[in-house]
Structures are given as structure tokens and as C-alpha cells.
Simulated scan of single mutants.
Amino acid sequence: MLGEKELIKLFPDFEGLIQPSGIDLPLEDVFVQKSAGSLIDNEKNLPELEKLEGPIYTLKAKTAYSVTVAPKVKIPKGYSMLYRPRSTLNRSFISVHTAVGDPGFYGTLQFMVYNYGEFDYQIKKGERIAQAVVFKVSGSGEYNGSYQESE
């Protein structure tokens, strides 16, 4: 795992968000699901999403949301990111479900947030919801999947 000195060199766009062992990821947009989706024979049929109005979002109890974080991330070749939820959210019954960031990925990170609590939860755009932990990866190629954005 990389520490803050290495992170500052590799991720200058995240200045001010670097922590001793990771990069804080602030909430950008929140979406609700408006249609069904499917994954059959590796064919992705993503659900339609509706963007909620901010800057303060109310996460209803027992409800899932798709969220984006800012800024866009560029993972250098030879590195991978794991995304972990901030402990404040865990303590408030809010979970952030994430994936692995592959070497070479560039784009907007999208996570799922679920309110496991019995009560609504309010959160403001720009609040830190997750932390990216960066690892060196040897012998890897680069991400070239359907979620790659152009630089």
C-alpha cells in the first residue's frame, strides 16, 4: 500500500484529499434506479438512472443509490485501487459498495450507497464517502473495458 508521499506524486489532481494511507473521495452526484437491468452472457444492460437534486441529499431508509465521486481518476499503469467506505458512514448505518480500480482506468468512479438504517440520512455534495487505497501491481496490463472514458 502506498503512503501519502507517493500518492501526492502519482495523483496531483487529488491535492487536499490525500491522507496518510489513501485518497479521500468526495460525493458528487446521487441517482435512483428507474428501470431494471440485467447481466446475461456478459451482456450488460444497465438500469436507467435519475439524478437527484442536491446539494443536500436525503438517503431514505432501506434504499439503494448509485453515486459518483469527484474528480475523475486516472490510475497509472502498474497500480491498482481498492475503495473502502469512510467509518463515519458505517457508524451511521450507511454502506458504500465498491469495486477494484484496474491499472490504466480513467473515468468517473461510480459506487452504490445503501442506507441500512431505520431512518433517513442526509449528506451533502462534497462530503468524503470513501477512501482509495493504492497498491503496486506487477506484471499487469491496462484496463480497456466498457467504462473507460477518453482523456
Rank of each mutant, 00 (worst) to 15 (best):
F14A: 04
Y83N: 05
N144E: 13
G54A: 05
L89S: 09
Y114R: 02
G78D: 03
K60Q: 13
G3N: 14
A36H: 15
K62M: 02
I8A: 10
Y147A: 14
A61E: 01
F111D: 10
Y57V: 01
L59V: 06
Q110G: 13
V134P: 04
S80Y: 03
A130D: 09
D24V: 02
P76Q: 11
V69F: 14
K62E: 01
Q110S: 11
G78K: 03
I75G: 00
K125E: 05
I40S: 12
N90E: 11
K60H: 08
I8C: 01
L89T: 07
Y83C: 00
G107C: 08
L49E: 12
Y121M: 12
Q33I: 15
V137F: 02
H97M: 14
G141K: 03
T68C: 12
I123S: 09
T98V: 12
F31P: 05
G22F: 09
A130Q: 02
E4L: 08
I129P: 14
I23F: 04
E15R: 01
L27G: 04
E127V: 02
F119M: 03
L109R: 07
G16S: 08
V32T: 11
I8Y: 01
E151Q: 13
P103E: 06
E151S: 08
P76N: 08
M81F: 12
G139I: 10
Y83L: 03
R91T: 09
D13R: 10
K77P: 09
P85H: 15
R84Q: 15
S66C: 14
K124N: 03
R84V: 07
G139W: 15
P55G: 07
R86H: 15
Y116G: 02
K72I: 00
R84P: 12
Q33L: 07
S35H: 12
